[in-house]
């Protein structure tokens, strides 16, 4: 998904996770926080404001996050990660906290279409981005094809890694609609599962991409 404001000459224009500086995201934040209620688009607002914006914090700051198509405004501690904002401040607990340092993928969400571990991103850094969480994949009672094939192939046990694996699988298929088994293994290698569901996940992703799951050998029982 292209970023609508990739012009590097604009202050605070760098999209999250792409070389954003502390200064620039604070600017983005400051403007966004101030402008959200008055203006619809945070990034446009960013571009229009001079760069003498005060650095915010250490006290709580108001932010608006766009999640699954809807804006949510909260006042958060500036140290709040996107993961904490989702879970603690917005009660969107489908996104799981497991390692809290980017090692396991359980907290994966899409930020402007890009797979992102939300524990490694500040909430204030996500202002202005379009965030999709696991709660936002299904359309009403209609599951995303990835979710549906996870259900069919029992690609989950305790389910704690599942939201992250679902998001990583979705992101993989968005980028590569017909991945090979090796590409699936590589594409999901940022996600850890402890119960041991990986091989069923591979089958789920194969099927969700219109391919045939891997079959076991057939042998008559003695």
């Amino acid at each position: 998904m292209p970023h609508e404001n990739d012009d590097p000459t604009l202050p605070g224009a760098a999209p999250p996770g792409r070389g954003v500086t502390r200064r620039s995201f604070m600017q983005t934040l400051g403007i966004s926080a101030a402008a959200t209620s008055a203006l619809g688009g945070e990034r446009e607002a960013t571009a229009a404001v001079a760069d003498d914006t005060p650095v915010l914090g250490p006290g709580p700051v108001p932010i608006t996050l766009r999640i699954n198509g809807k804006p949510h405004t909260r006042t958060v501690d500036p140290a709040t990660t996107l993961l904490e904002a989702l879970r603690v401040d917005l009660d969107l607990t489908g996104t799981k906290e497991v390692c809290d340092r980017g090692a396991c993928g359980a907290c994966s969400v899409l930020v402007d279409g890009r797979l992102t571990v939300s524990c490694m991103m500040l909430a204030i850094d996500a202002v202005g981005a379009e965030i999709t969480t696991v709660e936002g994949l299904a359309r009403g009672d209609t599951l995303d094809p990835v979710q549906e094939s996870f259900v069919r192939h029992d690609a989950l046990q305790c389910g704690f890694c599942t939201p992250g694996l679902v998001m990583a699988s979705r992101a993989l298929l968005d980028e590569n609609p017909k991945p090979t088994l090796d590409q699936i293994k590589k594409g999901l290698s940022g996600n850890l599962c402890r119960c041991g569901t990986y091989t069923n996940v591979f089958n789920a992703v194969l099927e969700a991409s219109g391919q045939t799951p891997i079959a076991d050998a057939e042998e008559a029982m003695p």
Partner: peptide
Amino acid sequence: ARLDAVAKVTGRARYAR
């Protein structure tokens, strides 16, 4: 399919944590 699979793939399953 596992009875709680849909709750788990949609993030609706609410754990103690």
